[in-house]
Design a protein around this nucleic acid. Structure first.
Lengths: 234, 234
DNA sequence: CATTATGGATGCGGAATGACAGGATTGCTG
DNA sequence: CAGCAATCCTGTCATTCCGCATCCATAATG
């Protein structure tokens, strides 16, 4: 944890870096925190003091339901936002956990408000970000409600690919286990295991240690294609 | 369909009316369209030409899934927004249908962009709107994924109450049928019918003709209370 | 007034799903 | 490399859920 200035930030895609006026970017110094894999960045029920920007890292955002069961609502990585405002609530309804070592910048509410007031382009970009996220979320809601388990697991894999990409070995480039997939898809660990076994024997994926390699991306997309008539990917 | 100026608009809670600068509000004239109950306002797959503001009315927003099954993702009424931008997509992924006779204002993309550029307060308010909607949607995703049918139906009734309120006769003040509830809750008509019968015999609701009256709001909330530990309602 | 359409209620069988348990595999540690 | 713990895999079984078919009530129609 320490302070850092945005001007020399390595993440040039960050909403702040991209949009702040010259005066702001020159002078602005904010808090930056390092999180180890598995560490909580936001805990449900704690007070909202500001907003988090991911400089670099991979994060899952989830609600805790009854029996402590998690529902992962989205993944976030470089340049994304955590702990958005809204409602005027003063506590976080969600938790956020680092899936890998992550560097996160924190901006308190007061500073954020000043930023909005004096940087219209920043506000506009934030609005567009929320608008995109809302549309994605609406689409995911439809999927969770209408898909069967096989489709939901395939959909979750594609979501992971979309968010975190594929590395040189064709593997989904993030650390996650069956429980994470189950909590994202809205099913349980056993069903996920079964489906992944099915996908493997169908030649769609290859299990490589802790990671999953994609052998046939089109095949995975085909599983859920009938649900995505009007969706333009990317 | 015709043109109307925002200055003399009856809906003083509209984002435009509230936030446009004096110059804009004085001169701005936009299209206004009347929709009869059941009419399509937006059709999935049609090109995005602008954005819709509801001056007055009640609207459901849904995706069409396989077999033409609808998934209602949200309800909208006075002052709300339809057809939000995002992705740079040029087609609507969702449909919107008037649940009752509605009056809707249309603003084309070009004008909207000018509005954002020259009215930072408007942009800020829109950002906050999207942020709130995103949080609501995240919460609804958790509910659909984790609740059983009984809870989902109760949750849908509460959603309808939250959006459209209760009239003098204690009835949920909007026209909807079992299919709409099923398409919102993520189940089917039969299950909804069963649950509504159960709720009736438990004294939670009273069926009055086409509408549903609430006899015990706290009882309904109690059904889903265990899912809402950290949520502050309104 | 008879007929037809529409929406709602309910029983039932088959399919999908989730819970449990036991076994296999993997990776870590001393 | 043995031992242990964590994770993953898979078979079985009970439950839930869904959609069909049917019946009923009410409203619209001629």
């Amino acid at each position: 944890m320490g302070t850092v200035d945005c001007k020399s930030c390595i993440n040039i895609h960050c909403f702040i870096h991209k949009n702040l006026s010259p005066e702001w970017i020159k002078s602005y110094v904010k808090f930056q925190i390092s999180f180890k894999q598995g560490q909580h960045i936001i805990v449900e029920g704690s007070p909202v003091l500001g907003i988090y920007f991911i400089q670099s890292g991979k994060v899952k955002v989830f609600f805790t339901g009854i029996n402590g069961k998690h529902q992962i609502v989205r993944f976030a990585n470089d340049g994304h936002i955590l702990g958005h405002r809204g409602f005027g609530n003063d506590i976080y309804p969600i938790s956020a956990v680092a899936m890998e070592d992550s560097t996160i910048c924190f901006i308190d509410n007061e500073t954020l408000n000043e930023m909005f007031l004096s940087n219209p382009k920043f506000t506009f970009d934030m609005m567009m970000f929320y608008s995109r996220e809302l549309r994605k979320m609406e689409n995911r809601m439809k999927n969770i409600a209408q898909m069967n388990v096989r489709e939901k697991v395939a959909d979750t894999l594609l979501l992971l690919i979309e968010n975190f990409g594929i590395n040189a070995d064709n593997e989904i480039d993030v650390l996650f286990n069956r429980e994470d997939i189950a909590n994202t898809a809205g099913t349980n660990v056993e069903q996920v295991t079964r489906q992944l076994s099915d996908f493997t024997s169908e030649g769609l994926i290859i299990k490589q240690g802790k990671k999953i390699a994609i052998a046939n991306l089109e095949g995975l997309k085909k599983i859920i294609s009938q649900h995505n008539q009007h969706v333009i990917t990317k």
